[in-house]
Amino acid sequence: MPVLRVEGVTRRFGGVTAVKEVSFQVHEAQIKALIGPNGAGKTTLFNLVSAIDRPDDGRILFRNPIRTGDAQIDLARTSPHRASRAGIGRTFQHSQIFEELSVLDNVKVGRHAHGRAGLFSAFLTLPRQRREEAAAEEAARRALQRAGLGDKTEIEADSLPLGERHLLEIARALATEPGLLLLDEPAAGLNNEETERLAETVRRIRDDGVTVLLVEHDMGFVMEVSDEVVVLDYGEKIAEGSPLMIRSNPEVIRAYLGEDYLAEEEPR
């Protein structure tokens, strides 16, 4: 039973078709990568899966594997906060951390849907508010541990270096306890050491049972961590398979790897 089924999804902006009849599946506890040249429609597809944007056509069915009993929902017809509550977690290509909060408070925001204390509890500091605050803090610390930021909880988020900002976004998304984690170019701007640390973290998250779908330009990283790869070109899916198959797919090489991958392989 797949976690995510993207079925015939199309998204047009004006006259441009950014994503055209794309279908693929993501299976449980798998790391799947979405690759393709710039403008291939990867980020558009990500926004569709996280319900920030809606497709013109098609369905995006999601069933959370870690919360059994949850019904399947169509992400093409819901709002981002509902998608999050259903078990979609995501990070952003351009850092979207809350810079005025501490690292720990950033991750506590990720616990939002797990709390119920509303404005009144907050205003009056009711016992429920105190209880939930303590629980949220504990869960946030756990999420930070999982993302490898356990030692950075108290510092201001805006003083984190870029590599750790990515990890913070991952921790924040993990705090929502997602069944499917979407990572939008998590390795962008990282040096080799940071990329290595990220790869380890992502694999560990997968081993914990979280399914991962990621968009990435760093081919070394993609080939290293992914169980399966989907290749988009001009909004259409041109290939899908194991990293090994993708490497040798002539169409993929022509569309994409021809330039980037060969150039990237050398230094690794």
Binding site: F13, T43, T44, N47, I52, D53, F92, Q93, H94, Q96, D184
Partner: peptide
Amino acid sequence: GQVSAQKV
């Protein structure tokens, strides 16, 4: 203008 969603 355009919905902000496209500019993530």
